[in-house]
Amino acid sequence: MTYREAMREAIREAMNADEKVFLMGEDVGHYGGCYAVSKGLLDEFGPDRIRDTPLSESGFTGAGIGAALGGMRPIVEIMTCNFALLALDQIMNTAATMRHMSGGQFHVPVVIRMATGAGRQLAAQHSHSLEGWFAHIPGLRVLAPATVSDARAMLARALEDPDPVLIFENALLYNREGEVPDDLAGIDIDHASIRRAGSDVSLITYGGSLWKCMDAAEELAGIGVSAEVLDLRTLRPLDDAAIMASVAKTRRGLIVDEGWRSGSLSAEIMSRIIEQGFWTLDAPPMRLCSAEVPIPYAKHMEEAALPQVAGIVDAARKLVGG
């Protein structure tokens, strides 16, 4: 199935399993979702559980948080992560802090899904990768499923969490096809996953960049460089053990992150590698990020602003000595 179909099946399964689960957001009902993830669900579950909302991220995200406090299990869909900034007060100052401020008396079991990433010529207001910003906030769990199997399985795990979970879905993945195993029990939201084993350099990434790293690893294999590809999957909390195990094995680390370089998630990962794994390294860790500009509209400029396979290959070759 496609990534889009996997997300739809995950939502359908959750709603069939628990009547407290419902979906709300802009155009999720009659239109079927901006990315067609919820297409057909309104006919199946009705308007009480597939709820179209006004164009007010602040309003409907707050309503979803309130519903979670009231005992429901809402799935809130925000069209793109750029628009999540309109709901940042609700996400950060209410959802993320409620358990702490109530001394554990209240939980906010809300799942907030949103598209992220560029590459679709939608210009700066619809194309940024802001998951690193939200991964900075204590009280949130931040997921970035990159495979069809993860898209199918991780939503159920997120709905089981008593605290708020944000799921960032790279928009370029919705049409990607993949196999989904019958048994999804082995997929969790706590651990990174090695997508390709290697011995010379670790490519550490997540989301849409995973597949660029997989392609880069294939190219590197053709010139005798064995690249390991580590898919972080969960950005908060990071799986430090998996990161350190990978760089200890290969002795080199390259982080590929579509966020901006300054103050980025890649900077946090590099710091942790230095703090925890310095003596295992044969070379300083490197990172490849998006150019520090608002994502351009023009196709050639947009491609130039994003990490690409050729850049990953070039950076990895420099790490292993050319």
Rank of each mutant, 00 (worst) to 15 (best):
F22E: 10
F22L: 14
M24P: 08
M24Y: 04
M24H: 07
M24D: 05
M24G: 08
M24T: 09
G25N: 06
G25V: 03
E26G: 08
E26L: 06
E26H: 07
E26M: 07
D27Y: 11
D27V: 07
V28F: 09
V28L: 09
V28P: 11
G29P: 02
G29L: 07
H30S: 15
H30T: 11
H30N: 13
Y31P: 13
Y31T: 15
Y31A: 15
G32T: 05
G32K: 11
G33S: 12
G33L: 13
G33F: 10
G33T: 09
C34I: 14
C34W: 13
Y35F: 15
Y35I: 15
Y35S: 14
A36R: 14
A36F: 05
A36P: 02
A36S: 12
V37S: 10
V37K: 13
V37P: 01
V37W: 07
V37F: 11
S38T: 13
S38C: 13
K39G: 14
K39H: 15
K39L: 14
K39V: 13
K39R: 15
K39E: 12
G40D: 08
L41D: 07
L41N: 11
L42Y: 09
L42D: 06
D43L: 05
D43R: 12
D43G: 14
D43I: 08
D43C: 10
E44R: 14
E44G: 11
F45H: 10
F45G: 09
F45Q: 08
G46E: 07
G46F: 08
G46A: 06
G46Y: 07
P47N: 07
P47W: 04
P47R: 10
D48G: 11
D48Q: 12
D48P: 02
R49Q: 10
R49F: 08
R49W: 11
R49D: 05
R49M: 09
I50C: 06
I50Q: 12
I50L: 10
I50F: 12
I50A: 09
I50R: 13
I50E: 03
I50W: 10
R51C: 01
R51I: 03
R51N: 00
R51F: 05
R51A: 02
D52Y: 06
D52K: 09
D52A: 05
T53Y: 01
T53G: 03
T53V: 00
T53E: 01
P54N: 05
P54A: 08
P54I: 04
P54C: 08
L55N: 04
L55Y: 05
S56Q: 04
S56C: 11
S56M: 04
S56K: 00
E57G: 02
S58I: 00
S58D: 09
G59V: 00
G59E: 00
G59Y: 01
G59W: 02
G59L: 00
F60G: 03
F60V: 01
T61F: 02
G62A: 04
G62F: 03
G62P: 05
G62K: 03
A63Y: 04
A63L: 06
A63G: 03
A63T: 03
A63R: 01
A63D: 01
G64K: 05
I65D: 00
I65S: 00
